[in-house]
Design a binder for these strands. Structure first.
Lengths: 141, 141
DNA sequence: CAAATATAGGACTAAAAAGTCTTTTATGCA
DNA sequence: TGCATAAAAGACTTTTTAGTCCTATATTTG
């Protein structure tokens, strides 16, 4: 459904978000240890999220990744959009380039329910909601 | 959402299905011309679908691909399962290996609605239903 | 049986996604 | 100012997915 980049990115963000609650920046090593994601690869993804203004970062001692925005204001949709783009929320289920909302393929409207359900789940959940419970269940904290 | 293999496969099957209504087998060239899929690649996919008993084939003059089953008895789900496997219908939205129905991540149940909607659309639609209208709209027939 | 036709199979190449490694740049602190 | 630390950047490698091409095999028909 989502790319690895996107999965890793979301998981990394939960770690950054949790640390943010203690007003703490997190380094890439700590992030990847907890989120169980490959380090160099995750670093690339986070670099990207910095460029796209989802998170911020600071170099040097006591540096690391952190949120300057409120976690309630960032939805999972925002993150997926930033990493994977909009395709998953809009593309024809059968991959027909001829198919769109104006000239739908016979399957289009049925798939619309899947797409809109996906959009609903992603846009109704903020990163804050994602990391609640996530920490307990996945990282056992 | 689905792989190219899967998209091409489904499109090819609509051509085979339509020809079947005139009791006609179709060769790979005709299939790919109509379905607008790459020929050699599509041939591989169809070979696979023959092995998996979705379609049948016959070599030699007047040979080609055809259905021996009733198109009403083959769902889109069957085809997706044969080509892409079950992952898309079962896998955790966030790609967590620790997450499953018994020990769900906080997101699992919300994603469940997406997965089950996808399953519903795929299993409630037979290939027969897929190619109805498909032909008119996509192939202008 | 020979020739023509069409799928099957196997060995490729190409492109995209995933992942690594090394060097550079920015920051804090002694 | 200089050293340690941590992210940024860039050039890689690896793996997976997509796609091609050539040869073998099966089938029909003259």
């Amino acid at each position: 459904m989502f790319s690895k980049r996107c999965e890793y990115g979301l998981r990394a963000l939960t770690v950054i978000g949790e640390a943010g609650k203690e007003d703490r920046k997190v380094g890439i090593k700590e992030i990847c240890n907890l989120a169980k994601t490959p380090e160099s690869f995750t670093a690339k993804i986070l670099q990207d999220l910095v460029r796209r203004n989802i998170i911020d970062s600071l170099k040097g001692p006591n540096g690391g990744f952190y949120f300057s925005k409120n976690l309630d204001d960032i939805s999972i949709y925002d993150v997926v959009l930033a990493i994977d783009g909009e395709e998953i929320f809009t593309k024809c289920g059968l991959g027909l380039s001829e198919c769109n909302a104006k000239k739908p393929c016979p399957f289009h409207n049925q798939f619309e329910t899947v797409r809109s359900e996906l959009f609903k789940v992603c846009s109704n959940n903020s990163l804050n909601e994602l990391l609640e419970g996530f920490y307990k269940q996945v990282y056992n904290r």
